[in-house]
């Protein structure tokens, strides 16, 4: 700089700096309060959840040796990828199981999406006059959304017996709740002018939904449903843990019986499936967003 910037005289400068510092201090104290809350919460939670960093330190080696064991062939000392044929010895039945898992997610999403659409429309204050009906639809969606799908699966396995049927139902019911909530936000934000136009032309309630509501929310509805499908594929992969069908059955057995190679192979297959499905639905959703 060729020339020094003129400084304010200290008498003027000091109050300005002080005022600035005062307002900053309020922000600082607020930040400190939040930090204190977080630390207190962490300490309480740590005590509650029996967090033991010493134990963690001792076992973190175990974590890496676990992955070491996962990737070492059981027969000989080599790494699994040196002998893919040996590693993926059960590829055919696993692929069938994976296919079933994806089908479970598909069926669950389909039923959930249809039900969720109905719940969203029935619960919308701008379309339905009947208040008890609306209240019922909203509460039902909330209940189905809040209870995790695995809890439903546990109950259904007892009622319907082991197998994919309770799994599909659990996914469908949880999706119904989640999609019901997301779609009701879409429905409640629609433009009401077409609705009025259709009603004034003598459209019945169903025809009004078909011609004035559905065209407005269809892209959003499909996009949310595809997203739910991605989530349900992950969910379907673990339903087998409670006996509700899919690849999870094989996985938990392999873990319980310490078949490390199988665990690794199944994890790789699950991750690959999820990544492929995410990519495909991602493409579709981008197309939908463009259409919007």
């Amino acid at each position: 700089m060729s020339q020094a910037l003129p400084l304010l005289p200290a008498a003027q400068l000091a109050p300005l700096l002080a005022a600035y510092a005062r307002s900053r201090r309020a922000v600082f104290w607020r930040g400190l309060l939040v930090a204190a809350c977080l630390v207190a919460g962490s300490l309480a939670s740590g005590w509650m959840a029996e967090v033991d960093l010493g134990k963690f330190g001792k076992h973190i080696g175990g974590f890496f040796s676990y992955f070491d064991r996962l990737t070492r062939l059981e027969g000989g000392g080599g790494r699994v990828w040196t002998d893919p044929g040996e590693w993926f010895w059960g590829l055919r039945p696993w692929l069938v199981q994976l296919g079933d898992t994806v089908l479970m997610a598909y069926a669950g999403t389909l039923f959930g999406a249809l039900g969720g659409f109905c719940l969203a429309v029935l619960g919308a204050a701008n379309l339905v006059q009947n208040q008890p009906l609306r209240w019922g639809a909203k509460r039902l969606a909330e209940f189905c959304r809040t209870v995790p799908d695995l809890v439903f699966a546990l109950l259904f396995v007892i009622a319907f017996g082991l197998g994919p049927l309770p799994g599909v139902m659990a996914l469908a019911i949880h999706s119904l709740g989640a999609l019901g909530k997301q779609n009701s936000e879409l429905v409640e934000n629609i433009d009401m002018k077409p609705v009025e136009g259709a009603i004034a032309a003598g459209a019945s309630w169903v025809a009004m939904v078909r011609f004035a509501v559905l065209p407005q929310i269809l892209p959003g509805f499909l996009s949310y449903s595809l997203l739910r499908f991605e989530i349900n594929v992950r969910g379907a992969a673990v339903l087998g843990f409670v006996g509700a069908g899919g690849i999870g059955q094989d996985l938990i057995e392999a873990v319980r019986k310490f078949y490390y190679n199988d665990v690794a192979a199944l994890l790789v297959l699950i991750i690959l499936t999820v990544v492929v499905i995410d990519t495909l639905t991602g493409l579709l959703r981008r197309r939908l967003l463009e259409a919007r």
Binding site: D52, K55, Y66, L150, R234, V255, V275
Partner: peptide, 25 residues
């Protein structure tokens, strides 16, 4: 990140139980 997300929390729980034992940790 993709790899981590491909595995459900429940599978991670299964893995960590084998590493640090049963319990909330």
């Amino acid at each position: 990140l993709d790899g981590i997300r491909g595995i459900d929390a429940l599978i991670w729980a299964l893995i960590w139980v084998s590493v640090v034992g049963l319990g909330p940790f």
